[in-house]
């Protein structure tokens, strides 16, 4: 990152340019460094966002990695800091530390079918990887986005999904847990979409992001389909506080989730998923 200060614990002020409400409790902010300059990141990485006097929270970056002029974060207001973020308006300033963590290995998946499996707001950390994959579309076989949401009203980036679905070179399948209104699409868990296939399991890379339970079952569905563990990646959430392996909070077995993750290759962590309260 071009604006990372010498001390990784001191944030850099960013000014909010735009705020868009995605869902009743979820919003997307675009921001730029107050002092000018670019922000470079890799898809899957996260920032620590600081709200003046309130605190800090880890939020994955959800913009296009090719566009360094603006930093995009999609956040769900579920706690003190995220609710304070929700109260910010264009023109307001927040502190940013990052980017931290590992990335979705988009380039390593060249030559494969690429299957994104997202659940809920888990689509946000995957979006930069989808952008990157589409920027190199010719390097992949099929590219499939499988997305599960709670209800049709909870579908994130709905317009963008529709746009993507209109493309001939990207398959988008959306399912909801509960159908409401005039929903005429799929109903059922996202793992059902995995089971339906449409990709070559022996030549597929899959990036999975959502609640941990969903990721466990999605990975199992992919494995059952024949995708090898070392071709599956997941993004793990733990209590990231410093973001850079100094505070110890996000430890998960031998890993510092903030720097060894959040994106892990599934074969390396599958066993940890099975240990309770780790």
């Amino acid at each position: 990152m071009n604006v990372l200060p010498h001390d990784p614990m001191v944030p850099v002020p960013f000014r909010i340019e735009k705020v868009r409400r995605d869902l009743s409790d979820t919003f997307t902010m675009e921001m730029v460094p107050e002092a000018g300059g670019d922000f470079a990141f890799r898809p899957g990485q996260f920032n620590m966002l600081y709200v003046f006097g309130v605190g800090e929270v880890p939020i994955s970056i959800s913009g296009d990695p090719a566009d360094r002029s603006v930093l995009v974060h999609t956040t769900r207001a579920v706690g003190t800091v995220t609710e304070a973020l929700d109260a910010l308006k264009p023109g307001d300033v927040l502190g940013v530390r990052g980017p931290f963590g590992t990335a979705w290995p988009v380039e390593a998946a060249f030559g494969h079918d690429l299957v994104f499996v997202a659940g809920g707001v888990g689509l946000a950390p995957l979006r930069p990887a989808i952008y990157q994959a589409m920027a190199h579309r010719e390097r992949f076989g099929r590219v499939i986005v499988l997305y599960g949401a709670r209800t049709p009203e909870d579908i994130l980036y709905k317009k963008e999904l529709e746009r993507w679905r209109g493309r001939f070179d990207l398959d988008v399948l959306v399912t909801v847990d509960r159908a409401t209104g005039k929903w005429g699409g799929n109903v059922g868990v996202v793992t059902n979409l995995v089971a339906r296939g449409g990709f070559d399991p022996l030549n597929t890379a899959s990036f999975v992001c959502g609640p941990e339970v969903m990721m466990r079952y999605a990975a199992a569905a992919l494995e059952k389909k024949g995708v090898a563990r070392d071709n599956i990646w997941v993004s793990v959430e733990r209590n990231m506080k410093c973001g850079c392996g100094l505070c110890g909070h996000c430890q998960w077995g031998p890993h510092f989730t903030c720097k060894d993750g959040p994106v892990f290759r599934f074969d390396g962590i599958a066993d940890l998923f099975q240990i309770r309260e780790l």
Partner: peptide, 26 residues
């Protein structure tokens, strides 16, 4: 043991804030 947490404090007017790092325990 090196784990720490952070604490955010503000003055009463809310114009000045500080962030402190404190030893924490797993």
């Amino acid at each position: 043991c090196f784990c720490t947490t952070v604490e955010d404090v503000t003055d009463l007017k809310g114009d000045n804030a500080e962030r402190w790092r404190k030893w924490d325990s797993c």
